[in-house]
Structure formats: C-alpha cells, structure tokens
Design a protein around this nucleic acid. Structure first.
Ligand SMILES: [Mn+2]
Ligand SMILES: [Mn+2]
Ligand SMILES: [Zn+2]
Ligand SMILES: [Zn+2]
Lengths: 138, 138
DNA sequence: TTTCTAGTTTATAATCATTCTAAATTAGAA
DNA sequence: TTCTAATTTAGAATGATTATAAACTAGAAA
C-alpha cells in the first residue's frame, strides 16, 4: 500500500485509461492482494463502499470492470444465470465452484490433465476450453 | 406423431404432472425428435407459437420447462450471462458452443478423454464436472 | 497557470429475462 | 355431475445490467 499507486497509474495509462481516483481505488482493491481474487460486481461494490469515504457509483464499477476486462486485466467466469464472476487471474485455467458458499477456486493447468477432444467440428476452430467442477461440502 | 401422445401422458403422470394440453404440446415439440434438442425459452416459445393455433403463455413455458427439469427430462446449460439453454439430452455429457450461430453441440463422453483432476478440496465432494468448448467459424 | 475538450463519472431511466401474483380455468377423483 | 387442488394466464414485480445525458475532470495546449 506504500508505493503501489504509481504502478496502477502507469498500468492504466498503458491501456489508454485515464488514472482517475475511482479507477485507482478499484485497482487497489482488486490487485493489491497476495492471490487471485474472484468477485461479483456486487461483492466489489460493497467492498468499495466499506473501503472508501467517498462512494464510487455502481455505474462506474460496471464501466471500470468492463474496461479492465477489455484491457485484459480481468477474466469473466459465468457459473450460471445468477452467478456472474470476475477473476484477477487472467492466465488460462479452470475452476471449482463451491455451491455451499458460492466461492470460486482456481484449478490451474497443472491441477488437471490436458483435455483431449476426439471430436472436431469441420470448418470451426476452438476459441476456448473451460472446465467447471461444482463441489459442495461433504 | 401418430401414437406418441399417449406416451407423454404416461410420462407426465409418472412425474405427478397432469397431462394438460399445454404440457403435451410442449412434450411433442421437445421430445418428438430424432436427436438431442438444445433450446432457449425464447426459441421454444416461438416454435410453439408457430406450431399451434392456440397459444401457450410464456409463463406456462417457464413453468413447464422448470417442471421438466425438476423431473429429470431436461438439463440446463449455462453458456454465459446472455445465453441460457436447455437440453433434451440428460445423460452426462459436455458441449461445444458455436459462437458464430449460438448453437450448442453435444460432446459425448466418448468424444473426450476422461477429465482427471490432480487437485481436490478437503471436506468437499464433486457434484459435477462440465467442459465447455467455445468454437467459431474458421 | 489558465483554457479547453474529450474522457469520465454519476444519478437515474430503460431494458430484458425471469419470477411472482392472484384470478380464471381445468383435470380428474369422488 | 360435483368439487377441489393443480394449472394456466395476463400482467406486475424483480433484479441485474446497460443506456442516457448532464456535471465533472484529466491533462494537452496555449
Ligand atoms: Mn454480477
Ligand atoms: Mn433463456
Ligand atoms: Zn480463477
Ligand atoms: Zn447437450
């Protein structure tokens, strides 16, 4: 939290995003962490409310998250119609989704044997392969 | 289309669902097919409108599809926030999603090597493992 | 430093899929 | 045929997301 802010300013500038107070605050909340962060817009909005005296509007949270996704700082992970997550881990990886507490857990490439498809669709190319493992408490 | 309807009546009765005109018509549209059918509520609603003189209300389509899912006649397949599908293939299988025409294609168990996880989460048990392969036209 | 403008934020409205509500209809047991 | 619970239905409500358009601001240029 000491000399992190300048990095975010550079990072934002590099993506043609003006380093506004709001975007820097959101960067701090999202990226100033030891590990991957999985969140919903609502999660983040509440976190920001707690974390700041001046509130950031919900519209700005949506705008910023979409801008960050577009710039490649976030991935989107759709679990089902009522659970839309974002992920600070932008490398190729898969997920556990714990239905007991609605928590996403990374399943990195080394945690899963390579997916091998024996079927291919003529005229089509593969854009992505994602595995979602749903879990619950025993 | 000749002596199919009685089967649906029995099928519905077996699940404690009264065989109403609407449910039978929906069964015919969904299950009277040579192969798996993937559809959205909207797809189905339009299909039913074309297929019948008397219209079935959207509320009934939702009610019926959820009842059929609950009874195990349908599976739900969530692609992303704007694409919610249902599937008449209720066996365990995976999917291609063709982003070019928003079409789901089955990827049966024999079309993919078994998914082997090297990571497990203590205290949790696996509910499901699903693979989604997104494709586009070359 | 001041001016200027495009980019950004914001409150609020609009959208859209889905669910809810409650009144009318219907299946089917009695 | 009667009766009741199940079902259907139109329309309202909800909730997440996106759009709108006015106010604000970053930062380039003067
Ligand atoms: Mn969300
Ligand atoms: Mn749908
Ligand atoms: Zn992740
Ligand atoms: Zn399928």
């Amino acid at each position: 939290m000491t000399q992190k802010t300048p990095n975010y300013i550079t990072k934002l500038r590099n993506s043609n995003l003006r380093p506004t107070k709001q975007r820097i605050k959101i960067c701090e909340v999202l990226f100033n962490r030891p590990k991957t962060f999985h969140f919903t817009i609502n999660n983040l909005y509440k976190l920001l409310s707690d974390n700041s005296e001046k509130k950031i509007s919900l519209a700005t949270v949506y705008n910023t998250i979409h801008a960050f996704k577009k710039s490649g700082y976030l991935k989107q992970v759709n679990i089902d119609s009522s659970n839309n997550y974002f992920d600070t881990n932008t490398s190729h990886h898969h997920h556990f989704f714990d239905e007991t507490n609605n928590e996403l857990i990374d399943l990195n490439n080394e945690d899963i044997k390579k997916i091998e498809l024996k079927k291919n669709i003529p005229g089509k190319k593969i854009k992505s392969v994602e595995v979602l493992v749903k879990i619950v408490s025993k």
